[in-house]
């Protein structure tokens, strides 16, 4: 262990004369092991202040940091039929769903929202890896379609933050069918002439990579993200040899021509604004912290459950 956990933490505990310190105030960097204070980590968008390792970020938190003034309106996603196959492995699928809902506080593995970034109106969707590995089932399919339809209706670009282990096995063939289904959403955007930007985050694998997550007009990845179709373990078992260092990581894909850019999460917002405004042939954005835009009355009326920063 290091000196923070052995020395500083007990000291802080004694300072506040509390016998128990909530575990979640500190977290350890997955990569360098540095202990990070939660508020500092949060302000740094869950990027390690020591080694710049990118840790998972919840979609809601990502949107708070992405949209101007942290203000966005959720796009309603039509609820699919739940547990369509009556799937049961060691646990029943509805039980797994409920556990994930409790753990994340979210309804499902994707959040869709509309708002402005750098005064550029957009629709964005973010996949939640904490929710059953971000897996793509009917809900995620519906979310992407709802997001694309909303973008087309409002004539706005669509930004998608991907993070998933792949398709949701508990929905069997219907999860597989989300590959062509979400591709229909991509086609809607393409035909409407709207930019579709994909940000690949750690990890994006399987059927998700092999559908909407690889079909962006611009493909950006966060540093160190694992991006693949078949995972490294499956490949090692198949070819029976060790894979090279950094195999299937964002930088490796960039080297192999599979991505446009690898961008640090902390500069991603500015980069998205820059790219979008050029694709939309708008003048350059004014950089800096912008005050939140006036809330749109129409959008607010539609979705009263506005998320607040």
């Amino acid at each position: 262990m290091n000196w923070i956990s052995n020395y500083v933490r007990p000291r802080i505990n004694s300072l506040f004369s509390r016998r128990e310190m909530p575990e979640n105030l500190w977290s350890k960097c997955d990569s360098c092991g540095t202990m990070l204070f939660h508020r500092e980590l949060r302000d740094n968008l869950e990027v390690c202040t020591g080694c710049a390792h990118h840790m998972p970020i919840a979609p809601r938190r990502r949107f708070e940091a992405l949209f101007d003034g942290g203000i966005f309106t959720e796009v309603k996603v039509p609820a699919p039929v739940s547990d369509p196959l009556h799937f049961r492995d060691q646990k029943k699928y509805p039980e797994r769903l409920r556990a994930a809902q409790k753990e994340t506080g979210e309804a499902e593995a994707m959040l869709v929202a509309e708002g402005e970034i750098g005064r550029t109106p957009v629709v964005a969707a973010a996949q939640d890896f904490r929710f059953m590995g971000g897996s793509m089932g009917m809900y995620v399919g519906n979310a992407i379609i709802a997001g694309a339809e909303r973008a087309v209706a409002l004539k706005r670009p669509f930004i998608l933050f991907a993070a998933a282990g792949g398709a949701r096995m508990q929905e069997g063939i219907l999860s597989l069918m989300q590959m062509p289904r979400t591709t229909v959403a991509v086609e809607m955007l393409r035909e409407a002439g709207l930019p579709y930007i994909v940000v690949l985050t750690h990890p994006t694998t399987g059927g998700v990579t092999a559908s909407y997550a690889m079909l962006g007009d611009v493909q950006i990845a966060e540093p160190g993200a694992l991006i693949c179709f078949a995972g490294p373990r499956v490949i090692e078992q198949t070819i029976r040899e060790k894979l090279p260092e950094g195999f299937q990581r964002a930088e490796y894909l960039l080297d192999h021509g599979m991505l446009d850019r690898v961008t640090d999460r902390r500069s991603l917002r500015d980069e998205l604004i820059t790219i979008l405004r050029m694709l939309l042939r708008l003048p350059p954005a004014v950089k800096g912290d912008l005050p939140p835009p006036e809330p749109e009355p129409a959008a607010a009326a539609e979705a009263p459950s506005d998320a607040k920063a």
């Binding site: 590959m179 062509p180 591709t183 990579t209 092999a210 559908s211 909407y212 997550a213 690889m214 079909l215 991006i227 693949c228 179709f229 078949a230 499956v234 490949i235 198949t238 070819i239 040899e241 894979l243 195999f247 299937q248 192999h256 021509g257 599979m258």
Partner: peptide, 18 residues
């Protein structure tokens, strides 16, 4: 699921074919 297949964009090729 092979090394070369991944390097040459297996996921992208499937997505584009769909």
């Amino acid at each position: 699921p092979g090394k070369g297949a991944e390097e040459r964009g297996q996921a992208e090729a499937i997505a584009r074919s769909t």
